[in-house]
């Protein structure tokens, strides 16, 4: 609140702007969780949705400090830019950052890979459950959105998981008005999604409005890729070009940033938020359809992984 005294005050009229309404809803949810839960944590991956969530947490608790720690479940297959960004954000907001790796779970034997280069994305749920047990978290705040996928469209904003991390879609608590029931039995925990009602376009518009910093991967850059069907697979040490592949260098950006082995970029020359918004508004493919290799396995892939405790 430093230096605010001399600035002209804003006349805030009815919150008819949809970003104001979505923001207010998220701030309310964040405050409810911090007020009612014993030991909440904010899941921070360095992706754009969690970047928005962290910014919202900053706004919800200002002028106090963010009222919970950050947790990153590291597959060990993240881009260096994202890890650097994650650490910089934790320092900026003065948050305790816990990092737990899928690598640790592999070492312990709770995760067994079919082959060494298998995507570790789905195994994050095992490591996440181990971290929840280790720290005794009763609520995990996450940046998932309902428009991402059909199964997510039916998940509550405050969603109960049992000690196996299972989501039971048929046995969800009804959620009415803005009255969130945050009570959980010992051993169970909550997954809370304050930006459930945001679309990909809302997220980008908000990033622009609030000037939220993102990892550079989200903006157009030159990258070596191989075309597999209609998906661009980045050439990395984990996803090397196969014999017979044609490697191209193209201008591209990531729409979602996850595990290297399962996140693909899209061809794009948008190197600033305004251009990305223009592209997103025109875009013909859903975010996950274009870029997530793991959701393509079957139409119900996401529901299956959620039932297994995936975020």
């Amino acid at each position: 609140m430093n230096g605010q005294a001399n600035k002209p005050l804003n006349q805030a009229h009815a919150a008819t702007d949809h970003l104001d309404l979505l923001e207010a809803e998220a701030l309310f949810i964040l405050r409810e969780v911090i007020a009612e839960c014993r030991n909440p944590v904010l899941l921070f991956s360095g992706g754009k949705d969690s970047a928005v969530l962290l910014h919202l947490a900053y706004k919800a608790f200002h002028p106090g400090r963010i009222g919970c720690a950050l947790l990153h479940i590291d597959t060990g297959h993240n881009y260096n830019e994202v890890i650097g960004y994650r650490d910089r954000m934790a320092a900026r907001y003065d948050c305790q950052l816990y990092v737990r790796g899928v690598e640790d779970s592999i070492r312990k034997g709770s995760v067994r890979l079919r082959h060494p280069l298998e995507s570790r994305n789905a195994y994050q749920s095992v490591t996440l459950m181990e971290a929840i047990a280790e720290f005794g978290f009763d609520a995990c705040l996450g940046g998932a959105r309902r428009d991402e996928e059909k199964a997510r469209a039916k998940e509550r904003i405050v969603s109960v998981r049992d000690e196996f991390g299972q989501w039971e879609p048929k046995n969800q608590r009804p959620e009415l008005w803005s009255l969130y029931n945050t009570r959980v039995a010992l051993g169970d925990h909550l997954r809370v999604f304050p930006i459930s009602n945001w679309t990909e376009l809302d997220v980008w518009q908000y990033i622009q409005r609030e000037d939220i910093e993102l990892p550079a991967l989200y903006f157009a850059h030159a990258r070596q890729v191989v075309r597999r069907g209609d998906i661009l697979v980045p050439v990395t040490h984990l996803t090397p070009a196969q014999a017979g592949d044609t490697v191209e260098t193209i201008s591209c950006r990531f729409r979602t940033v996850g595990d290297i082995s399962c996140t693909a970029p899209v061809a794009s020359s948008a190197n600033n938020v305004a251009d990305i918004i223009a592209e997103t508004a025109q875009c013909l493919l859903t975010e996950r359809g274009a870029t997530r290799l793991d959701d393509r396995a079957s139409e119900a892939a996401m529901e299956q992984r959620k039932k297994e405790g995936y975020f």
Binding site: Q4, K7, L9, Q11, A12, H13, D20, A24, P63
Partner: peptide, 28 residues
């Protein structure tokens, strides 16, 4: 306030921080 943004007027649906001129015992 909404974070560092100081407001003169806040309307329905806004999530704000309010300061008052006297020390009253107020809780959640």
């Amino acid at each position: 306030n909404v974070a560092e943004q100081a407001l003169a007027v806040a309307s329905a649906d806004r999530a704000v921080v309010v300061s008052l001129d006297s020390e009253i015992d107020i809780s959640r």
